[in-house]
Design a protein around this nucleic acid. Structure first.
Lengths: 240, 240
DNA sequence: CAGTGGTCTAGACCACGTG
DNA sequence: ACGTGGTCTAGACCACTGC
């Protein structure tokens, strides 16, 4: 007698979660902003407080929001300090987070080549922004990296005079693009003559190569980055 | 008038969780075994089904158990395939998991040196098992590694004739030690003459160096491992 | 003190896997 | 058909924050 299962068989809390994600994505709720309480969200969507709680809990697990007992729930804000802590996984021998500086950033725009089109899942003919920069640690260069971004998501970024040291907070604050996940592929490589010159090394010196793809909401690839790192007494930390 | 907060102010579900962890640690519940249902656990501890559910959910989040709708909840079983999938993070250019072989394993027992004592948090004078081995990929050597274990946790392991390719399932099945977390510190280094000979390389070739600490229940360090990897067209994958 | 997230309960029904 | 985990509700109280 019962009708066939309706096509939208997902749990209620998942649908509520999706609506909340959309509010963050679209900027209705801005970085750092207090969102409504569990009871208000429950009332608005016509669900119980427990279901609203589970939806918000899912957002917290994805680190799209931060909950604070007694205060409320806030949209995550990618400040430079937060971005370094969460996405920059380099530590020195004492286990302290390395704070890099950025130098000589240069941005250009060009049609994507095959590798870029593949990595960023772009349509044929789409343009990319290419950024080359050197990062320094206590004044001396230790990372050379190239960053590729889909041009359409970051209008006029290539025209900026000075790119900030941490890009991900710029992505969120200026372009409304929130990164949620990264995949880093690590290997070792020998410094070529050019890189050796930039990093002040002898050619052939071993470098840690990190190829990163960073994903935004909906698992869309946002950034493709290749970093060549000379880590004197330091390391990349991968947990779990 | 109300008495000061009792010293055991932890949530109920956390106390239940702890008791469940103890059953796994002590071997009352064995690898792969079906544990009681939520209702049975709730009844046994005198809590509601929701609280038992939250305790079991915490175990599932730590990957100590696996839940299967309609079947039940099972203690995680570290089979070789599971161990590779969860703890071996090497992938080839096509994104396929690399399946390594193991060769020439050699185990010895000795008093811990300072580095080993520090890394494994051992008491002064404690002994360690040292394992040296070479791992091969399609027949050719590509990883040389040394593994250190606290001797008291693994009685007679050093006397085993043949060590298996994957050690972590041996840890769980034979010694009742379940690994829950790893920390990998990655850097690049140049092959010394000895390592170059073992891995069939020219001295100075760049190698990926992975220093791993693996932790068991209660966050006790169980294993300290240094791997030197020659990853031809392959990489170590770190997510998030 | 009011308001928030965090815990806990009791009960209902659903979706899934097995016998 | 049965038992499991998964979802959902309604209501209560606790712990923390800020006024």
């Amino acid at each position: 007698m019962s009708p066939p299962a309706p096509p939208d068989a997902r749990p209620l809390y998942a649908k509520v979660r999706e609506q909340l994600v959309e509010r963050i994505r679209s900027g209705v709720w801005k970085p750092g902003q207090l969102i409504p309480s569990e009871f208000e969200i429950a009332a608005e969507f016509g669900v119980s407080q427990g279901t609203a709680r589970k939806a918000i809990g899912a957002l917290a697990a994805e680190r799209l929001v931060m909950r604070q007992q007694g205060r409320g729930t806030f949209v995550v804000e990618h400040t430079p300090a937060h971005v370094l802590f969460r996405f920059f996984n380099m530590f020195d021998a004492a286990g302290e987070l390395i704070i890099p500086d950025s130098r000589r950033a240069r941005a250009t725009v060009a049609p994507a080549n095959d590798a870029e089109q593949m990595a960023l899942q772009l349509a044929p003919g789409a343009e990319v922004i290419r950024i080359e920069r050197v990062r320094t640690r206590q004044g001396s260069p230790f990372i050379r990296e190239t960053i590729k971004l889909p041009q359409d998501l970051f209008p006029d970024l290539a025209q900026l005079e000075d790119l900030p040291n941490t890009l991900y907070d710029l992505f969120q604050k200026t372009y409304g693009i929130l990164l949620v996940r990264t995949e880093d592929r690590l290997s070792a490589t020998a410094a070529d003559a050019d890189t050796a010159g930039v990093l002040n090394l002898t050619p052939g010196a071993p470098l840690l190569r990190i190829e990163r793809t960073a994903f935004g909401l909906g698992d869309r690839p946002i950034e493709w980055r290749v970093s060549l790192c000379h880590l004197q007494d330091a390391h990349y930390l991968a947990r779990t």
